[in-house]
């Protein structure tokens, strides 16, 4: 296949992983109005759950104890479950806090998790990470076909997530979340119990982030702790704000726009030295895009609109 086509397909495939993450963030932060800077936690938990279940047993130079070489379907299921469970547990203390205090607690938890991933060699193989995690069904297809297959599978995951999240945000449950976002005290007088709603949406977000973590490892075939810095959280937030916070279409397109923005420059065939410069410059470009959007389109590309009933 032509190089550019291959490149475009793989960029979009990666973008779908971000789409799921971005939709998860949107229902939590866009719809329910929480200030979560720790979404990378569940992304990471999901990714490691998948890796540990699917990876082969450790080689002599590796240190992790587990590596079950199980069917990736179990990997994905475990990733979703563990994403949810970790969100439930982290939610217990942190959901008692609001706004800045919630923000700092969630980012602190995500750093504690990342540091744990880097240091607990028996579980995660530490900073060296786990490599060569086999992609499901890879052996049955030629590389080109597999690329397209991956694109389709990830697209389906993204679309299903989009429909679930949209349905939920347009349901009575979603209405209660928006009410909490707009005015928590008043929402209480409408019989809405904040702790229940916040906790359930937090766990739901954790499950989706866990799913996207699993897909991320599937795509990359490797996992290292540096993939789970707060940078991911800020990236997803940036994508959501560019797309339009509170709007699921915005979240979907924002993630794709963002990944294209980030990856496009890396297609150019350049000398190694120049490539390094370019890789820095594209971060600057993302920053510039974010600043400009916030200045001139503060509600994002597709803003939240009044819902006609």
């Amino acid at each position: 296949m032509e190089g550019f086509l291959i490149f475009s397909i793989s960029v979009l495939t990666l973008a779908f992983v971000y789409v799921i993450l971005c939709l998860a963030l949107n229902i939590e932060c866009g719809v329910a109005g929480m200030w979560d800077l720790g979404i990378v936690s569940y992304f990471g938990v999901g990714a490691y759950s998948y890796a540990i279940l699917v990876a082969p047993a450790a080689a002599s130079y590796q240190h992790y104890l587990f590596g079950f070489e199980l069917n990736p379907v179990f990997g994905i299921l475990l990733a979703v479950t563990m994403g949810g469970i970790s969100a439930y547990l982290i939610g217990l203390p942190s959901l008692r806090l609001r706004r800045e205090y919630f923000l700092i607690t969630t980012i602190a938890f995500s750093e504690v998790l990342r540091i744990t991933f880097s240091n607990e060699n028996w579980l995660t193989n530490g900073v060296a990470g786990i490599y060569n995690i086999e992609q499901p069904l890879k052996t049955f297809f030629s590389p080109d076909i597999y690329l397209i297959l991956l694109f389709i599978v990830f697209f389906v995951f993204a679309i299903i997530t989009y429909f679930i999240v949209s349905r939920l945000s347009n349901s009575t449950y979603g209405l209660s979340l928006k009410a909490l976002r707009e005015n928590e005290s008043l929402a209480k007088t409408a019989r809405i119990e904040p702790s229940k709603q916040y906790h359930s949406v937090y766990v739901f977000t954790g499950c989706l982030a866990g799913l996207s973590g699993a897909l991320y490892v599937w795509l990359n075939t490797l996992i290292v702790p540096t993939q789970f810095t707060p940078n991911v959280t800020f990236f997803v937030w940036t994508a959501l704000i560019i797309g339009g916070i509170g709007n699921n279409k915005g979240a979907f397109l924002g993630a794709i726009f963002f990944v294209i923005l980030l990856e496009t420059l890396s297609f150019l065939n350049l000398s190694a030295e120049l490539a390094l410069v370019i890789s820095s410059l594209r971060i600057a470009l993302v920053g510039l895009a974010l600043i400009l959007i916030l200045r001139f389109l503060p509600n994002g590309l597709i803003s939240e609109k009044p819902r006609f009933l």
Binding site: F234, W237, T238, S280, L281, R282, I283, A284, L285, V286, G287, L288, A289, L290, I291, L294
Partner: peptide, 9 residues
Amino acid sequence: VGLAYMING
């Protein structure tokens, strides 16, 4: 955050 990316980049 955008500014941070710009400086960093």
